[in-house]
Design a protein around this nucleic acid. Structure first.
Lengths: 119, 119
DNA sequence: ACTTGACTTAGAGTTAACTCTAAGTTGTAG
DNA sequence: CTACAACTTAGAGTTAACTCTAAGTCAAGT
């Protein structure tokens, strides 16, 4: 598919897609015979994974490191696994923290509803 | 306490504290007789709340709106409660999403450990 | 009196992650 | 064969949230 279609499928703007390619997150994107990018299923899967890492708070620079290890093939599996393990641990901690934050907010909301009742 | 001490207590740099004041998040900070800011317990509590909103993904602009309602006194309690309710809802959704993300990452880690075992 | 160090201000600089512009090329429809 | 839309590139501009600089004031210690 062309970049327009890919941008619809991935929900990224064409700007962002080219930016990701320029910074090295997307490699070996094939081109059709008029020099335009041609994206495939594999690219969709890879972008989905990038988005998951990003949405869970991994900075693009770190995702780039992962991408570069991936580029080097199977010999880097262990390093990549380790990156994911560390990230998953941070994520777990973050979820716990957010659950506490949510509780505190709900307490404050309850407090507000008491105050409003008395007005 | 002076800004140095306040920065230690709140874990914000003095730059950030002045920035928050300049943008309107901190109002009516008192001054000592040489014109230096003088922070109190109330300011610590308020900063802690700002940080909670920020850490749960609320942009400073929105926190500023909240701060301005707060400034206007009790008549805005209902609006503030509504802001918090909407925010808490988003946070709840986000936590659910992150839990799914964590599961997916853990699946990937499991997959990696299988691959590595076979190498 | 003078140095030192913490404070003050306005405003400039930085960083991450986009987002856009300008100038040019290519493929298809009329 | 010409208009037009979609693509290409390099590089500039934007936004949020800081982060720092420069130039100055002030209080305490020697």
């Amino acid at each position: 598919m062309n970049i327009k279609k890919f941008s619809e499928v991935t929900n990224l703007t064409t700007y962002t897609i080219r930016y990701y390619e320029k910074m090295g997150l997307l490699k070996n994107i094939s081109r059709n015979n008029s020099g335009h990018r041609w994206f495939t299923e594999k690219d969709i899967v890879w972008i989905a994974f990038i988005k998951r890492l990003k949405d869970t708070g991994m900075p693009l620079e770190e995702i780039l490191q992962y991408a570069e290890l991936r580029e080097q093939g199977n010999s880097t599996s262990e390093q990549r696994m380790q990156m994911l393990q560390e990230h998953a641990l941070k994520l777990e901690e973050n979820i716990t923290e957010q659950q506490l934050n949510l509780e505190k907010l709900q307490q404050k909301i309850t407090y507000y509803s008491e105050v409003i009742k008395l007005q």
